[in-house]
Design a protein around this nucleic acid. Structure first.
Lengths: 356, 356
DNA sequence: CTGAAAGCGCTTACAG
DNA sequence: CTGAAAGCGCTTACAG
C-alpha cells in the first residue's frame, strides 16, 4: 500500500480510501490507484486490517465429531457460504467429548474469529461465548438459530410410506437423547398416521464388527409383519438394508428401507435408498447471514430482538424444509406377501425423483 | 498486555519477554507477570503477533472435493495434528474443478496462511505457491510429500486374497487417471501373484440412480468364475456388495468383496467389508511436521535438500504403511462352487482383526 | 536484568 | 477532494 502511495505521490490514507471506496476520492485518482495496485500485484494484508478494525474476517466451524458422515455436506456448505461472503472458515473438532467442545471453542476465540457456527453435541446447550454464534441443531432446541425442519422431513417420509400402503413400520434410531432423531421420529409417526402400527427400535452404534456383524434381528421383524424399516439416518438404513438382504429378504419387493440425509452412498447401493435430504446450502446461507448481521455494524440501530437472553447466541429459529428423495418404488406387497408384484425400475440410470 | 505492564509498573517489553520466555527476565518477575496475566484473564492477540512476526499460525487445508467421503478422516487428522502444534486450520474446497483449486489456494494465501496441506486433484501438479506446501497424494507422484503407501496396501490385500485361495479376481476402479487407484491396483496385482487371473473394471461414478440403480453386471462376472471383487474404494465395494446380494449371490460364502479406506460404513454393513486403512494420524503428523520445519526458522542453516527444484513444495516422499483389516473370513469355496463351506463367524461382535 | 523506541500494514476520525 | 497523524497489540533489536 505504501508502495502504491509512493509510486503515485499520494498518501497511504488516500490509497486506502480509493481501494475501499470509503472516503470521497476523485474517480480519476481511484482509477489510477487501482491500476497501480494491480500493476504492483498488491495484496492487502488482512492481518493488519484485522488488527486495526478488530475483525479478522474468519468464522469458526465447531462440529461434534468431524468423523461424522454428514460432516462433508455441512463443511462444504458452510465453506461455500462463508467464502461467498468474504470470510474464511477455521475448523475445530470436538472429538466427541464435551470438554473438547469447550476447548475447541476456546481455541477459535483465541484466534479471534468474528463469529462461529456450532453444531452442538447432543444435549449441549451453547452458553454465551465471546462472539456471535449460530447454532445448527433442530427447531425444537432452545437457542437454535437455523436448521432443517427434521420433524417435517419425518412427516414427509411417513406420509410417503403410508401412501404406499405400509401398515406396520419399524422406526430405527441410535440415540433417544438426540433432538434431531426425536424430531424425525415424531414427524414419521405423525406422517404415518394413527392407523399405521409402529415400533421404535433404538440400536447401538457398532464400534467394530467382523463377519456377520452385529445383527439387529430385522429378519424376525420382517417375518413378524413389518413391511417398512424407516431409519433416522442413512447409516442405520444401510445397516438394515444389508442385514435384510443377507437374510434373503427382498428389498424393496418384500420390505422397504428408508433413511435420512442422502449420504453419498445412498444413491449407489442396490437398491438405492429412499431418503430425505437437508438443504444444507440454504441452512448454511442463513447461518452465515445471521452471523454477518450480528458482526457487521449495519447502519441501523440494533434490533434488540435478536440478542435476547441467550446473549450472543442468535436465536431466530429458521426452519428449512427437507426434500424427500424417492429412489425405491416401495409399494407394499399385496396381502399374502407375494414378492414379485414390484415393478422393476428400468436399468437405465435416471435421476432420483425429487419431491418438493 | 499493557494492562499487565501498568499494574506491575514494568514495561510491555518485559511482559512480552516474561510471557514468551525469550528475553532474560528474573524468575521472580516472570512469576509475578504470569500471576497477573491469569488474574486479568489476559489473552494475547494473535492478530497483533501475526502482524509483527509475519506469521499467522494458521495452516490451509485444500481438498479436491470436501464432499469426498474420505474427507472426515483427513480433516480430523490434520486438524488434530495442527492444533497439537499450535496451529489453526483454514479449509478450502476445490469443488471439483481445477480453476477452483487455484482460486482456493489464492484465498488461503491472501489470508496469510503459513503453509498448506494440499490433497491435489487427479493429475494436478502443484506448482510453486507463495508458501510451504505439503502434498498428500501417492509416493509415486512427483512432488508428493507424504502419503499412505497405496501400492503396499494393495499388495497386502492381494496376498490376503491369494492366500484365501482366490484364483480369479475382478479389480474395480473408478478412474484410470488416478495415481492413488493405479498404485492400489498395481499393488493388488503384485500381491495376487502371477498365477491368479485378474481383470480390471473401470466403473463410472453414479450421479443419481433410482430403483435398481446402475448395475455393473457383477452377477455375470460371478457366474463367469470370479470369486473375489477387489474394489479400490469402499464406496465401489459397497456398490458391488449390494448388487451381488441383490442378485442372490452370497457374500462371503460364494464370492468375496473387499474395499479400501475403511470408511465409516464398512464395519456396519452385513457382511462387514474387509478393507485397507490409511494411517491418517501418522500421515497428518508427518505433513504438519514437514510444514513446520519449513515455516519455523530452526537454529540450523537451511537443509538445502528439502527445497529443491519444486520450490516451496516439500518433497520428502514419506510412505506410511497401510493396515489390512480383515472382517470377512473370505475363504474361497471348494472347486465346484458349493456355497456353504464357509464357516460362519459367530454373531457376537468382535473387534475387526487387524493385521500389521 | 529491564526499558524506551520503532515498526509490522492497515483504517479512521480529523484537519485542511 | 486529499493528507498528516494516531493507533490497533504485539515483538525485536538496541541501550542502559
Amino acid at each position: 500500500m505504501s508502495a502504491i502511495a509512493a509510486a503515485l505521490g499520494v498518501s497511504a490514507a488516500t490509497v486506502s480510501n480509493a481501494l475501499s471506496g470509503k472516503g470521497r476520492v476523485s474517480p480519476e485518482l481511484i482509477e489510477k490507484v487501482r491500476a497501480k495496485a494491480s500493476e504492483l500485484g498488491y495484496v492487502p494484508s488482512l492481518t493488519a486490517r484485522a488488527l486495526r478494525t478488530g475483525r479478522t474476517g474468519v468464522l469458526g466451524l465447531v462440529l461434534p465429531d468431524i468423523a461424522n458422515p454428514l460432516f462433508p455436506q455441512i463443511a462444504q456448505a458452510i465453506e461455500n457460504a462463508a467464502s461467498n461472503a468474504g470470510y474464511g472458515v477455521l475448523i475445530a473438532d470436538s472429538r466427541g467429548d464435551i470438554a473438547a467442545q469447550t476447548e475447541a471453542i476456546g481455541r477459535l476465540l483465541e484466534r479471534g474469529v468474528d463469529g462461529m457456527v456450532i453444531v452442538p453435541r447432543r444435549g449441549t446447550r451453547i452458553a454465551d461465548v465471546g462472539c456471535p454464534v449460530a447454532v445448527i441443531d433442530t427447531p425444537s432446541t432452545p437457542g437454535n438459530t437455523v436448521s432443517a425442519d427434521h420433524w417435517d422431513g419425518g412427516s414427509q417420509m411417513g406420509r410417503h410410506l403410508a401412501e404406499l400402503g405400509h401398515r406396520k413400520v419399524l422406526l430405527i434410531g441410535t440415540s433417544a437423547s438426540s433432538n434431531v432423531q426425536n424430531d424425525r421420529i415424531g414427524g414419521l409417526k405423525a406422517g404415518l398416521g394413527a392407523q399405521v402400527e409402529c415400533d421404535t427400535m433404538w440400536i447401538e452404534k457398532v464400534e467394530a464388527v467382523s463377519g456377520e456383524g452385529c445383527p439387529l434381528g430385522l429378519a424376525d421383524k420382517a417375518r413378524a409383519g413389518f413391511t417398512a424399516f424407516a431409519a433416522v439416518s442413512d447409516l442405520s438404513a444401510l445397516r438394515a438394508l444389508t442385514e435384510l438382504q443377507r437374510a434373503g429378504i427382498g428389498v424393496p419387493e418384500t420390505v422397504s428401507v428408508t433413511g435420512f440425509d442422502d449420504l453419498i452412498w445412498s444413491a449407489v447401493v442396490t437398491p438405492a435408498l429412499t431418503t430425505v435430504r437437508m438443504d444444507m446450502a440454504t441452512i448454511a446461507d442463513l447461518a452465515i447471514a445471521a452471523l454477518i448481521r450480528a458482526i457487521e455494524p449495519e447502519g441501523e440501530a440494533e434490533n434488540g430482538a435478536e440478542e435476547a437472553s441467550t446473549g450472543n447466541v442468535i436465536s431466530e429459529t429458521d426452519r428449512v424444509p427437507m426434500q424427500l428423495i424417492v429412489r425405491q418404488s416401495t409399494a407394499v406387497p399385496q396381502a399374502g406377501g407375494i414378492s414379485n408384484l414390484h415393478v422393476q425400475t428400468p436399468n437405465k440410470p435416471t435421476a432420483g425423483e425429487i419431491t418438493s
